[in-house]
Simulated scan of single mutants.
Amino acid sequence: MYEPLRIQAGLRIFRRGEKAFGPGIARLLEGVEELGSLRSSARRMGMSYNKAWSVLHSCEAHLGYPLLHRHSGGAGGGGASLTEEGRRLLSRYRAFEAEAETMLDQLARQYFDDTV
């Protein structure tokens, strides 16, 4: 049975020559949205909390705005939630990614449909 080739690309957003956003931070933010915690999101990805914090901080610095609201601990513990800017960026990134994937599939058929 013939199965067409599929092209897969990881999309990254750069600002001033530095990576500002990509698939890893997108997954991290989706985890925060779902789990309510940067630590829990990082743990699910197999990433240390320090690494997650570093990636997030670097991303926010490159973008120039915060992606998370951080909630201090206490009786109920701490947590995090996405800022409006963070939610908007994540939504746009995923929409762009889906459209780019569709276009890549079209290009793959155009250029590689007769291979393999």
Rank of each mutant, 00 (worst) to 15 (best):
M1I: 07
M1Q: 11
Y2Q: 01
L5T: 02
L5R: 12
L5P: 12
A9L: 11
G10I: 01
L11F: 13
L11N: 09
I13T: 12
I13Y: 03
F14S: 00
F14M: 03
R16Y: 00
G17V: 00
G17N: 09
G17A: 10
E18I: 00
K19S: 03
A20S: 03
G22K: 03
A26Q: 09
A26C: 08
L29G: 08
V32Y: 02
E33W: 04
E34F: 11
L38D: 12
S40G: 14
S40Q: 13
S40W: 04
A42C: 13
A42S: 09
R44H: 02
G46C: 12
M47I: 02
M47H: 01
M47C: 03
S48M: 05
S48T: 11
Y49M: 03
N50I: 01
K51T: 02
A52V: 02
A52H: 03
A52L: 10
S54T: 07
S58N: 14
A61I: 06
H62R: 11
L63V: 03
G64C: 04
G64V: 01
Y65S: 04
L67P: 13
L68Q: 07
S72A: 15
G73Y: 13
G73F: 11
G73D: 12
G74D: 10
G77K: 07
A80M: 07
S81R: 13
S81W: 06
E84I: 04
E84A: 13
E85V: 00
E85T: 03
R87E: 14
R87S: 15
R88A: 13
R88I: 04
L89K: 10
S91C: 14
R92Y: 12
F96M: 10
E97S: 12
E97V: 12
E97M: 09
A98Y: 07
E99W: 09
A100L: 14
A100C: 14
T102C: 06
T102L: 12
T102R: 15
M103G: 12
D105Q: 15
Q106T: 15
Q106I: 11
Q106E: 15
L107Y: 11
F112L: 15
D113V: 05
T115H: 14
T115G: 09
V116E: 08
V116M: 11
V116W: 12
